[in-house]
Design a protein around this nucleic acid. Structure first.
Lengths: 208, 208
DNA sequence: ACTGGATTTGACTATCCAGTCCACTCGCGG
DNA sequence: CCGCGAGTGGACTGGATAGTCAAATCCAGT
C-alpha cells in the first residue's frame, strides 16, 4: 500500500529526476523554514525548475508536502538503518544513542527531527499528512521494538519487559530531547532523556 | 530581568487591556495555526481591533510573537502550579502524569505543547525567540527538579539520584510524548514516556 | 471646560504567493 | 524522419499580507 503519488500519466526517466529534484529541494527548505515559510517560488529557485513544473508533478502544495513527508521518512530510516539493526544489545543501544547525540551536536543543536517539525506544523489541520507522519513514527518505533524483542529472545532482557511500551517511551524521549536541544542549544536534555530510557530498559536486563 | 515589551510611551489601563487582548488572540491563533499561518488581519479580527492597533503596541510581528511566548510560558506554569508544587512524592508525580494525560486526551490529542510548537517554528531562525523559549523550558524543568530535590531532602529518594539529569529527561519525555500524541492521535507514547521516566526515578526510591 | 497625549480608525501601498495558461522544446516509438 | 505526448519556460491573475499614515476620538489632569 501507499505506493507513491498516484501520478496518472507516465513518468519518463527525466521526469522522475525532475520530480525528485523538486521534492528534495522542498524537503530541505521545509526543514529549514517550515512548510508555511517555504513558498513555491523558493522551491522553484532551489530546484532550478520553472514555476509550472511544480504543478506538473504535484496537484498542489499539499501534495508536494505529502511527498516530502514520505521522502523524509525514508531518509531517516535509511540513515539509521545500520544502527537500528544493531539495537539488539546494550552496546547497540548506547552506540545508537551516541551517534544521535553526535549528529545533533555537529548540526549545532539546530533543526530538530524532520518528522517532528512537520508534525507540529501539519498534524492538527491536515489529516492525511498526520496519518503519513504517524505511519513514519510507527515504522521508526517498530524498528526499536524489534531490537528489544530480539534482546528478549536472546535472553538478554527479561520477558517482563514490554517492547511496545518501551519503544514508544524511547521514541518520546528522543523526540523531546531533539526539541529541547533546538530550544536550549545543548544536547543535555537529549542525553538525559536517552540515558534515562536506556537505563530504564537496563532495569530488565538479565545478568550474564 | 526580562520585564516586558520595552514599550516607551505610557500605557493607560485601557491600553493595557487592548494590548492583552491582542496578545491573547494572537496566542490562540498561533497555537492553532502556527506563527507563519497567523496573519495580522486574522489577529485583528480575533481581537476585535483595527489594523493599526497591533503596530501601535508592537514594533512588528516578531515583537508580538515574543509577547506570545512570554504569555504562553506564564500560562503553562500557572496552570500547572498546583501540581508542580506537589512533585515531591511519587503520588505527586503520578498525579501530575495523570493530569497531563487526561488533559491531552480531552483535547483530542491535538495541539501539542504551546512552547513546543513555537520552538520548532522559531528556534532556528529567531535567536531572541529561541532564548525566550529556552528560558521557559528552563523554568519548567526547574520546577520538576525542585520537586525531586525535595524528595531527596525528605529521604524519599536516594542521594545518588541526579535531579538535574532526571528533570531534563522528564521534560524530554513529556515534550516527545505530546508530539507523538499529536501525530498518532493516541496518548500511548505520552503515557509510555512518562511512565518509564517515573519508574526510572523510582529506581532511586528509598524503601520506607 | 480645555488641553495634550494616549488610543482608535480605516483606507492605503508595495510586496508576495498559490495556482493557471499557453506556447514552446525534447525525445521516443513507429 | 515524423508525430505525439511528456517536459519546460515564463508571463499572468486574483487574492492575501506586513506594515504605514493622517485624521478622528477618548480621557485624565488641571
Amino acid at each position: 500500500m501507499g505506493d507513491m503519488t498516484a501520478h496518472g500519466p507516465k513518468l519518463t526517466q527525466r521526469g522522475q529526476a525532475t520530480r525528485e529534484r523538486i521534492v528534495t529541494a522542498a524537503a530541505r527548505l521545509m526543514y529549514e523554514r517550515g512548510v508555511a515559510g517555504t513558498s513555491t517560488p523558493d522551491v522553484r529557485t532551489a530546484a532550478g525548475v520553472s514555476s509550472s513544473q511544480i504543478y506538473h508533478y504535484f496537484a498542489d502544495k499539499s501534495a508536494l508536502t505529502m511527498a516530502v513527508i514520505e521522502q523524509q521518512t525514508e531518509m531517516i530510516l535509511r540513515r539509521q538503518n545500520t544502527l537500528l539493526d544493531k539495537l539488539d544489545s546494550f552496546e547497540g543501544l548506547w552506540a545508537w544513542r551516541d551517534c544521535i547525540v553526535d549528529l545533533v551536536r555537529e548540526l549545532g543543536c539546530a533543526g530538530g527531527c524532520p518528522l517532528g517539525s512537520l508534525t507540529t506544523e501539519l498534524a492538527d489541520h491536515d489529516p492525511r499528512a498526520r496519518e503519513a507522519l504517524a505511519a513514519g513514527f510507527s515504522r521508526w518505533g517498530t524498528a526499536i521494538r524489534d531490537g528489544l524483542r530480539t534482546m528478549i529472545d536472546l535472553g538478554r532482557l527479561s520477558p517482563d519487559a514490554d517492547p511496545d511500551h518501551l519503544s514508544l517511551a524511547m521514541l518520546a524521549a528522543l523526540q523531546g530531547g531533539l526539541l529541547l536541544a533546538q530550544a536550549q542549544h545543548t544536547t543535555a536534555a537529549l542525553e538525559a532523556g536517552l540515558d534515562a530510557m536506556i537505563e530504564r530498559i537496563a532495569c530488565h536486563a538479565v545478568p550474564t
